[in-house]
């Protein structure tokens, strides 16, 4: 499976349905829509810049849900964003808005399991997946509780550090895929930017590769043709596993 991320509202709020459409057409099996935040501490320069552009273009939480409601697609749409944006709207209301706009899951990179109680409760009630992350330094017992608690899939952070495109795939990543033993699908993200890396992740035992910053970089350059090609090639590489 291929999961693609883009920052909703970059280049402008109205572009959201079009972007989803393009990504799905090119081969995305799941689309993550980032809600831009002023202080994205888990993100590298590409997504930081995209977030700033989107905020300046007028993106906000109301428009985010409005645009997602207007998006027609069969693939699952997943919210990705920082907890203050959820907290500020009210956890309950935010989860409601997700459910009614067509979002099926949430990834909140600054909300570790231990702090997720209220959101988890709301998600469970509304049948939304709250997707937890596992990092390369997460200890074994904690991995066990995370895979126990996560729903939809478990997000394996491919490497220490923030998001951003990298060339190589580390042993650290393969080792992590090995160590996370679960029936829940394993999706690997952070630093995956090429078809080769995506294939390697799948060969190493993951169920999905997540590509974010590489897409965001192409959107930043206005290269939608390149974006469609990259996503297509990644999908193909995942299918062939090479």
């Amino acid at each position: 499976m291929l999961i693609t991320y883009f920052c909703a509202g970059d280049p402008d709020p109205q572009s959201v349905p079009r972007m989803v459409d393009l990504l799905v057409r090119a081969g995305a099996d799941v689309v993550e829509l980032g809600l831009p935040h002023s202080d994205p501490i888990a993100d590298g320069p590409a997504i930081q810049a995209a977030s700033q552009r989107a905020i300046e273009a007028g993106m906000n939480t109301d428009l985010y849900f409005e645009m997602i409601s207007k998006t027609e697609t069969d693939v699952p749409l997943v919210f990705m964003g920082y907890y203050n944006m959820i907290f500020r709207r009210g956890v309950e209301r935010f989860a409601q808005d997700c459910a009614s706009s067509g979002i099926t899951g949430l990834i909140v990179p600054d909300l570790p399991m231990d702090e997720a109680g209220p959101l988890k409760e709301a998600c469970t009630r509304l049948d939304l997946d709250l997707i937890y992350l596992v990092a390369p330094n997460t200890p074994p017992e904690r991995i066990e509780s995370i895979v126990e608690e996560t729903s939809g899939f478990v997000y394996l952070v491919a490497r220490s550090g923030v998001t951003g495109a990298r060339r190589d795939l580390l042993d650290e990543t393969k080792d992590l895929i090995d160590r996370v033993k679960t029936d829940v699908p394993k999706a690997v993200g952070f630093g995956i930017s090429t078809p080769e890396q995506a294939a390697e992740v799948i060969r190493s035992g993951a169920d999905a590769a997540i590509v974010g910053s590489a897409c965001v970089d192409l959107i930043a350059r206005g290269d939608l043709v390149g974006l469609e090609r990259l996503v297509g090639e990644m999908k193909e590489a995942i299918r062939r596993k090479t």
Binding site: Y83, P112, E115
Partner: peptide, 12 residues
């Protein structure tokens, strides 16, 4: 209070 951080920072 609390600790609202990326999973990578939980252990450190």
């Amino acid at each position: 209070g609390g600790s609202f951080v990326p999973e990578t920072l939980v252990q450190p």
